[in-house]
Structures are given as structure tokens and as C-alpha cells.
Design a protein around this nucleic acid. Structure first.
Lengths: 168, 168
DNA sequence: CCCTCTGTTCAAAAAAACTTGAACAAATCC
DNA sequence: GGATTTGTTCAAGTTTTTTTGAACAGAGGG
């Protein structure tokens, strides 16, 4: 459930870069995302210039596959965008740094889907509970299911508020 | 990063119990907690009577070790309490079912520590950044670090608001 | 066209996280 | 105080998740 965490060391990072990368590695861990995402985003975040896939592979010392997949996920989350650097064949990436966007992407990709699937599971649950014959038990079940519904509802209400508070 | 999830099946659970357990297994997964916690809490949540460690082992078909550790964690999170059932040698457990308490425990145990460690890492970062000689670069680093600080600050502000909204 | 360079894919390897179970401690009973 | 029951601990085993790397697709370039 927990773990010692630290294990990053690239010859190629300055002390600051290393610290920032570690910072984000911890950050994404809390969010349940793989460490490579934290490494990639962290390095982009603390770089003045956009970086290419190869830059990231070199500086972080992780595989091309990881970086490729990591960038894809980060793009989906809206945490990274392609820079328009015209004069090079390869693509350069820069980080999205406004919190609103980051939080929005995370909610959209990681929270909403679970909330939604939860809600549909609750539907089924209600149907199943209705089959219970013992009235005492059925009453108990319904009460609990109602509580779950109220939790989900609050969760749903929370998200926009969250975004509002964090969005500047 | 994702997985099919489903794999619970105990001969000993009613259809409803099974569904609720699955519901919570998914739930704790989102929170980054082990599935056994979801199974245990889920079964307690949908049981009219408090259950003993052995009840949970029997009904869920998981090991005594898992249940013992799971209950400990749930107690730490404030999600489960010991029932005062006097006339039995063993301890019985019942779920905490008010959201305020659950959210509070989760924040206290899982969020705050990370926020705090993040804040101290930022301190170090500032010190390291101050050593940078190139003024342009130092300015850039400081700007980014400031941004991180503002994120952490908002995170800190958010928690009480969260608790307020979710707490009835 | 063929060759090189950039990036993607995915099966296999490695690492991380979780669960098991057997040994142990502690409490209670007779 | 010995036997029994309840619960904890933790090393080893298992499962899940992540990373790697080699094969491949596609885009240019010359």
C-alpha cells in the first residue's frame, strides 16, 4: 500500500531538475499514475525550452516506449501540448501549467468515468434489492443504497466546485 | 495503469452483498487503496449486524492476515469502529457511515502527509534554485517554484472546503 | 524509390503492491 | 497453569502494474 518511492537518478539532470522531477514523481503517485508520467511532466515543467521525445529519453534515462506512452497519456490529460517549433522534423512538447486545465483533465479522465460507472452499478443494486422478500431487511438495504446514492450525488456536485475553486 | 478489476466471488455472499462489495472494491481502487479494504468495508456496510474478523474471513474467503491488516487500516482511517457487543470473546466491527468522518479520515491519513512533505520539498527547492548563477535561468526557476507554491497553497485551502461541503 | 529518422506498439521482463499462511503473542477459560 | 481461542506479524508467494526493447509503420529527404 505504501513504498519507499525514491529511486530516480539520471546523470543528466541538474540538482534542481532532479528535485522537481522527484517532486512530481511523488505527486503523480498520490494520484495513482505511473512514475514515468511524473518524471516526464516534471522535467518539462522545469525546462525553459520544449523537449522532444528523444530529449526526454536521454535526460531521464528511461525507455523510448515509456516516454512515448507517457506523453500520450499526458496529452490525453491535457497536461502536455505539442509546441509549434516548425524547423525540426521531430515534435517538441511543453507542459500545461495552469491548474484549471490540469485539474479539469484529471477529473475528466480519471474521476468522471468511475463516478458514472458507480452510478450505473447503483441502478442495478436497487433492482436487486427490490427482490428481497423480508421487509425488515429490504428496508435496511434500501436505506443503505439511498446513502450510497447521496454520496454519489455529492461527488457529482463536488467536481464543478472543485474546478471553480482551483481554476484561478 | 488500468485493469479488468472484477474477480471477487465468494460462495457465501448474497447477490446484493456481492454487488455492494464490488461497488466498494471499485471505490477504494480509485482512492488507491487495496481491494481487501473495499471488500471488508463493503461487507460491513451492507450487514445489519456487526461482524467479527472470522465472519469476514469466512464470508469474503480471504485470509485472516488480510482481514486483520485491513481492519487496522480501516480503523486508522476512521471508517470502521469496534462494536460494543459485550457477550463474546471476539471483537465485532461496524462501519462508519457518515461521509464527513470518512472524508476526514482519508484526508488526514492519505492527503495531508503528502501535502506536508511536498511543502518541505519546496523549501529545499527554493534553496537550491538560489544557487543558480545565470540570472535569466534563476528567474525562470523562481517563477516555476512560485507556481508550485501557489498550487500547494490552494491544495491546503481546498481540504477544509472539501470537508465542509461533504460534511452534511 | 531506397534510406534514414521519428515515433508507436506490444510481448516479455522487471518492479511494485498485495495477499497468504504459519508462527507467535495475548487473553480467557476451566 | 495448561489448553483453547482470538488476533497480529511478517517473510514468502502471488498478482498486478509498469517498463523495456525490438520490431514495425510512416514520413521525409535526396
Amino acid at each position: 500500500m505504501d513504498s519507499p518511492t525514491s529511486k530516480t537518478q539520471s546523470e543528466n539532470l541538474s540538482s534542481i531538475q532532479q528535485q522537481v522531477v522527484d517532486f512530481f514523481v511523488d505527486g503523480v503517485r498520490v494520484l495513482g499514475l505511473p512514475r514515468s508520467l511524473g518524471e516526464i511532466y516534471g522535467l518539462l515543467f522545469i525546462s525553459q525550452e520544449p523537449l522532444s521525445l528523444d530529449d526526454l529519453v536521454q535526460k531521464l534515462g528511461i525507455s523510448k516506449g515509456s516516454v512515448s506512452q507517457g506523453l500520450r497519456t499526458l496529452k490525453t490529460l491535457g497536461a502536455v501540448r505539442e509546441a509549434e517549433n516548425i524547423n525540426d522534423r521531430r515534435t517538441y512538447y511543453e507542459p500545461a501549467i495552469d491548474l484549471k486545465r490540469l485539474v479539469g483533465g484529471f477529473i475528466r479522465e480519471q474521476i468522471r468515468p468511475h463516478l458514472d460507472s458507480g452510478k450505473s452499478k447503483l441502478q442495478l443494486l436497487q433492482d436487486t434489492a427490490a427482490l428481497t422478500t423480508d421487509p425488515i431487511e429490504r428496508a435496511f438495504l434500501n436505506e443503505r443504497i439511498e446513502r450510497l446514492e447521496s454520496w454519489m450525488k455529492r461527488g457529482g456536485q463536488l467536481l464543478p466546485i472543485l474546478q471553480k475553486i482551483l481554476g484561478q
